[in-house]
Design a protein around this nucleic acid. Structure first.
Lengths: 222, 222
DNA sequence: GACAGAATCAAACAGGTGTTTAGAATGGAT
DNA sequence: ATCCATTCTAAACACCTGTTTGATTCTGTC
């Protein structure tokens, strides 16, 4: 019912930003429904009514968080691939592309603070959507897929559109699984097995995927 | 508005079983926290107190559901691989193994009723655990992984334990992603793209993974 | 200093949660 | 017909939820 009090509020001491940060952390950790407005406000050192005053409700706060983060993450993932494509000199190899995407995908996870939170948020949202159903596909999944798919086709001539799309599927599937597993395993208190370490797995996914793509391309040619 | 004698269908259809069925469906659809005991009981045509009487609480009902299903699913996934291994005649090829596991993994999803519910339940539990943290690893993930890992090594001599474990990771990651995506896409109302159809994707995953595994095994030999 | 608007606060609101209770049916076995 | 354990029922319990309210403090402008 009220207008946005301050649209930008750069300084980190605004209550509005403290609420956003606290909510982001809690939503990622416990999920939307499981996080109460009281938790958020006390965590941010604010009053219970602060969420409704600044955002007009719990749902809007949630939406605001995604709006703030999605664009940045998408750009981060596609930019490396695009950069490779338009780079001067020789055309990037298949391994170049897969490697660039893999590190771009996994990089936000290496720092344990911010990246993990975002991934967790996204995973939760995909399983229990509280956002408009199409928003995720249009703003995140489709652009990233498109970008990687085109890059693969430029490096592997003869790869059809459908084949490229499925290979993208395979790569992303592996990467998402790596993320989920690392989260689950550490949470379950199991000491991480060295053969499934994040960096080791990144190398593996690259080699595995390059082999897989070549197999797909090769068998279709015959 | 309660006891309807024509509601019964099965011999073992005491309210206890009706509660289990209703809860399983609702937990899968909306998640544990988001499903209320009142919903479960009214869906099962029972009194609100029935859950606490028969199971001693909402949590125990949830645990009971998994206890009932997990063993069966695990057996279903490992048995096909084991059968291949101990089959008379020539040793199964790499493609045989990956193919058998893929279809065993995806099969419960082809029938749209029961299998989907179970997958949904598991996906939710992995993201927001309400069960003892280790139960899932010990009763489901580890045995399946072990079984597939050994099978791969028997078909691809020279594949180390660590490499096999990572390849299993890659395969399962792809399959889980196929499942999630199919769920998300149909839920979002998008008409399924034919190149990402379940059967087509199954074939793709097999070829992609065989190529990937061979690449891993080949590069390690050099 | 005076004033307006933004920001914060404690308290209460209406509604939903899982669980407990005491009492009433039910179905066999004696 | 009596008894007893099992099963079911309606009502209440204590607690937590997101949101609203009306008053109070803070902040910047004239």
């Amino acid at each position: 019912m009220t207008f946005d009090p301050q649209e930008r509020a750069e300084p980190g001491d605004g209550t509005r930003n403290k609420l956003l940060d606290a909510a982001e952390r809690l939503f990622a950790e416990k999920g939307f429904e499981q996080t109460s407005v009281r938790e958020i406000t006390t965590e941010a050192g604010a009053n219970i009514a602060a969420v409704n005053y600044h955002f007009g409700g719990k749902d809007n706060l949630y939406r605001e968080i995604f709006h703030r983060r999605l664009a940045h993450l998408r750009e981060q993932r596609t930019s490396k691939i695009e950069a490779l494509q338009h780079e001067g000199g020789s055309r990037p190899t298949l391994e170049d592309i897969v490697s660039a995407f893999t590190s771009a995908f996994l990089e936000p996870l290496m720092d344990h603070s911010e990246g993990r939170i975002l991934i967790e948020l996204i995973a939760r949202e995909m399983l229990s959507p509280h956002l408009p159903r199409t928003m995720f596909f249009e703003e995140m999944i489709d652009p990233v897929r498109e970008s990687l798919s085109r890059a693969l086709q430029s490096a592997v001539p003869g790869l059809t559109d459908a084949e490229a799309a499925r290979c993208v599927h395979s790569i992303i599937g592996q990467l998402v699984h790596v993320i989920h597993h690392s989260r689950l395993a550490t949470e379950a208190g199991r000491q991480p097995r060295e053969e499934l370490d994040l960096h080791v797995m990144a190398d593996h996914v690259i080699r595995f995927s390059v082999g897989g793509i070549q197999a797909i391309a090769g068998s279709s040619k015959v």
